[in-house]
Simulated assay, not measured.
Amino acid sequence: MISGSKTKSPLMWVVHLSVLMLVLLWTLPTIGLFVSSIRDKDQLAVSGWWTALFSSEQNVIGRSVDPEDQVFKDGLYVLQGNVLEQDGNSGTIKAFGWRAQEPAAFKVGETADMRRDRKMTVESDGSYTITQPEEWTGKRGKRIFYTIETPPIFTLDNYREVLTAEGIGQSFVNSLTVTIPSTVIPILIAAFASYALAWMHFPGRAVLIAVVVGLLVVPLQMSLIPLLRLYNGVGSFFGVPAKTYLGIWLAHTGFGLPLAVYLLRNYISELPREIIESARVDGASHFDIFVKIILPLSFPALASFAIFQFLWVWNDLLVAMVFLGNTEDQLVLTGRLREMLGSRGGNWEILTASAFITIIVPLGVFFTLQRYLVRGLLAGSVKGG
Rank of each mutant, 00 (worst) to 15 (best):
S278T: 15
N232S: 08
I130R: 00
P67E: 10
L378H: 05
E135V: 14
S285C: 04
V46T: 14
T368D: 00
F255I: 06
Q70E: 13
K107D: 11
T164Y: 12
F172T: 06
A353Q: 08
L44C: 07
D42C: 05
K6G: 07
S175V: 01
L377R: 03
K383V: 12
Q43H: 09
I61S: 14
G138L: 08
S64W: 02
V361W: 01
R336Y: 13
S354Q: 05
P296M: 09
A100R: 14
E68G: 10
I93H: 03
K292W: 13
G247E: 00
G364C: 07
V60K: 10
K41G: 06
I187N: 03
V65G: 06
P181W: 09
M321V: 10
A95I: 05
P29C: 03
L208P: 00
F172P: 01
L215S: 12
H252F: 15
D125K: 08
Q330Y: 15
R205Y: 05
A191R: 01
F106C: 04
P226F: 04
V178K: 02
F96T: 11
K94T: 12
F172G: 00
Y267L: 02
K142Q: 15
V218S: 10
R205F: 08
F367G: 01
W98A: 12
L28A: 08
E135L: 12
N315G: 15
L25R: 02
R63T: 14
